[in-house]
Amino acid sequence: MKSITKRYIVPIAFLLAMTVQVNAQSRITTIKKDNRKTTTTITKTRTVTTPSRSTKGRIASNRVTYKTPKKKVISVRNVPNRTVVRHNGQNYYYSNNKYYTQSRGRYIVIAPKVGFRINVLPINYRTVRFNNHNYYNVNGIFYNQVDNEYEVIEPEIGTIVYELPDDYEKVVLDGETYYEYANVLYEKIQYDGTRAYEVVGIIDMN
């Protein structure tokens, strides 16, 4: 009798043990997957090619509210050691990593417009790689190399940078706060455990 009982009980116990082990492995795998998804959702850690949930695309300027009623304007009386760059019949003055235009005897800091070209990048440029292409960021202005020149462009949605120029603006869109510079809209995110800013839209000025 003991021999018969042992013959049936041992295989059954073995099968039960295997079933429990398989189920346990399945639960662990599921938990790991869930944790990974949760982490991605909370920290927004992702590859650069993944579009943001906050992607806005092109935005009419009347939809954006600036937190300060007047736009920051920086002007100086003189621009020492300046380099003159001519574009579309207008002179721009480059000095101390900033571009200026002249108005009423003063020099006003501006962001060069899309299409503006220079022969040599400023020394403080940073290379930004996105969609297997290198762009160059200088104080919030993006350049693309065209032959032997560098042309100002609008960054692609999803491009990530790690800092913004000092004179960025805080804006509100659809009840959420974003950051704007040179008509580019950024969202603050965590990327690979570091604070960063992702391009989520371009503001069309009316």
Rank of each mutant, 00 (worst) to 15 (best):
A24H: 15
I42L: 14
K33H: 13
G175T: 03
I9G: 02
K44G: 13
S75I: 09
P80M: 14
Y191M: 14
N62M: 10
T65E: 13
E180Y: 00
Y125W: 12
P165H: 04
E151F: 01
A111L: 00
Y94E: 05
N62D: 08
Q145L: 06
I4D: 11
R46H: 09
Y178T: 03
R63F: 09
T127A: 10
P155M: 09
I160W: 06
V172P: 00
D147Y: 11
R126S: 12
T19R: 06
I203G: 15
G115R: 01
N23I: 09
H133W: 11
R86A: 02
Y94C: 01
L173D: 00
T47H: 12
Y8S: 09
R7W: 10
R36C: 08
T38I: 14
N144K: 09
P69Y: 15
M18P: 01
I141G: 03
Q21N: 11
G105C: 05
Y186D: 02
K71H: 12
I160Y: 07
S3I: 10
I4N: 08
V200K: 06
A111M: 01
V22F: 11
V184P: 02
E156S: 08
R77F: 13
T101A: 00
K33Y: 11
M205A: 12
G201I: 08
D166R: 01
T65S: 13
M1S: 14
Y99V: 00
G105Q: 03
V120S: 06
N23C: 10
N148I: 12
S103Q: 11
N23V: 07
G201E: 12
D204M: 12
Y191G: 04
Y143M: 13
R63S: 07
I157R: 03
L121R: 02
K56Y: 12
I74L: 15
V199D: 05
Y135V: 06
G57F: 04
S26I: 05
R63H: 15
K72H: 15
G105K: 02
K70G: 07
K113G: 02
Y150M: 13
R104V: 00
I12W: 10
E187L: 11
K113S: 06
T39H: 14
R117W: 00
S61Q: 08
D34A: 12
A60G: 13
V146Q: 09
I110Q: 06
N183F: 08
K170E: 11
K32H: 06
K33M: 08
N78V: 08
P51K: 14
T177F: 03
I108S: 02
E163N: 11
I123R: 09
I153E: 11
G105Y: 03
E187N: 12
I31R: 13
I9Y: 14
V10F: 15
R53D: 08
D166L: 00
D167L: 01
P112S: 02
L15Y: 09
T19W: 07
